[in-house]
Simulated scan of single mutants.
Amino acid sequence: MPSARYARIIGTGSYLPPLRLSNAELAAQLAADGIETSDEWIVERTGIHARHFAAEGVTASDLALPAAQAAIAAAGIAADEIDLIIVATSTPDMVFPSTACLLQHKLGIAGGAAFDVQAVCSGFVYALTVADSMIRTGAANKALVVGAEVFSRILDFKDRTTCVLFGDGAGAVVLGASETPGILATELHADGKHSGILCVPGHVSGGKVSGDPLLKMDGQAVFKLAVGVLEKVARSVLEKAGRSEDDIDWLIPHQANIRIMQGTAKKLKLPLDKVVVTVDQHGNTSAASIPLALDVAVRDGRVKAGDTVMLEGVGGGFTWGAVLLDF
């Protein structure tokens, strides 16, 4: 009998564009256009103190490249050992080809499968689940999974309820085949009837933008839905893996809003010191937020080999999902 085959995270990486905007700096820019907000208003509602914005002309694949390179270096492998690239993004470089194909070329490699996953803020969890399945079945041996976003391109800076929330960045992991379990259980869900509460209702048609190409969100509806589905999917993944809340060393949720994260931790009976929080410094980086937060926690020594980590995301679609893994 052949031995069981699993996928393990063997390297992490992340990248933030150099331009950092504090709440006060962003508020000053908005005030010039007659939009009122303040550091206190933003922090009270979201927990966000700052975010990073990409410079003009910088694309998702540009942000993904240094994050990917850092993850590959941390894994101790050569780039040409990567035989699968999945990029989770809602802000791709272009309609096609995929951002993953562009990233593959920038890494100087070719031949392996490369494609994008679009599940908005749940995108990284979706992409990691697909990569896990492909490694388990032998379709890939070493997978690069990246979340990369330039959400600053789709923000309405006349809407203070949304433009203060988001930032740009990228996070990446390398998965490798292993005889030792790494990713223990995953679960993905979607419900398209909620599409209107978080969307960018525009598209390209006939060489022009049709509809509205800027982000729209019903914050209260998103909050109410998010906390409920995140608790449910986390418990389901724990049950699949034969684990309990007490086994979780670290919860790394999508970094959308500190209130959602605190609400989820409370429902799972986890102390807040077991929750990795980066939303305060990065804002909501959509599909990049989970791998960004994971890399920060790995590099500062919080997440260590042998730790059990719960990753979970929720985003437009409406989509949600979770991954439980031993690091």
Rank of each mutant, 00 (worst) to 15 (best):
residue 132 D to Y: 06
residue 157 F to Y: 15
residue 126 Y to G: 08
residue 143 A to N: 08
residue 102 L to T: 10
residue 114 A to N: 03
residue 106 K to S: 12
residue 108 G to E: 14
residue 150 V to I: 14
residue 116 D to M: 08
residue 143 A to L: 08
residue 141 N to A: 11
residue 98 S to W: 06
residue 148 A to K: 06
residue 142 K to P: 04
residue 125 V to M: 08
residue 122 S to H: 11
residue 132 D to R: 12
residue 146 V to Y: 03
residue 136 R to E: 10
residue 127 A to K: 12
residue 153 R to D: 01
residue 154 I to C: 05
residue 124 F to K: 10
residue 157 F to N: 13
residue 123 G to Q: 00
residue 115 F to G: 03
residue 138 G to V: 01
residue 129 T to C: 07
residue 129 T to W: 07
residue 135 I to H: 05
residue 109 I to G: 02
residue 158 K to L: 13
residue 123 G to C: 02
residue 128 L to T: 15
residue 111 G to C: 07
residue 122 S to K: 04
residue 152 S to I: 02
residue 108 G to T: 13
residue 144 L to T: 00
residue 139 A to I: 03
residue 152 S to K: 08
residue 114 A to V: 00
residue 129 T to P: 12
residue 127 A to C: 09
residue 124 F to Q: 12
residue 118 Q to P: 05
residue 104 Q to T: 09
residue 103 L to T: 03
residue 113 A to I: 04
residue 143 A to G: 07
residue 135 I to F: 05
residue 123 G to R: 03
residue 131 A to W: 04
residue 140 A to L: 06
residue 136 R to N: 06
residue 143 A to P: 02
residue 99 T to Y: 04
residue 118 Q to H: 14
residue 151 F to A: 15
residue 139 A to S: 12
residue 118 Q to F: 08
residue 148 A to R: 05
residue 129 T to F: 11
residue 117 V to A: 11
residue 125 V to R: 10
residue 117 V to F: 05
residue 106 K to G: 09
residue 103 L to I: 03
residue 119 A to N: 05
residue 141 N to T: 13
residue 146 V to A: 07
residue 110 A to K: 13
residue 116 D to Y: 09
residue 142 K to N: 13
residue 125 V to I: 15
residue 121 C to N: 02
residue 145 V to P: 00
residue 140 A to D: 10
residue 120 V to E: 01
residue 140 A to G: 04
residue 115 F to K: 04
residue 120 V to C: 11
residue 121 C to V: 14
residue 136 R to I: 02
residue 149 E to S: 11
residue 116 D to T: 10
residue 126 Y to W: 09
residue 115 F to N: 04
residue 128 L to M: 15
residue 151 F to W: 10
residue 138 G to S: 05
residue 135 I to V: 12
residue 152 S to P: 01
residue 132 D to L: 09
residue 103 L to M: 06
residue 145 V to Q: 02
residue 138 G to M: 02
residue 147 G to A: 04
residue 115 F to P: 04
residue 158 K to H: 14
residue 126 Y to K: 07
residue 113 A to L: 12
residue 158 K to M: 10
residue 127 A to R: 12
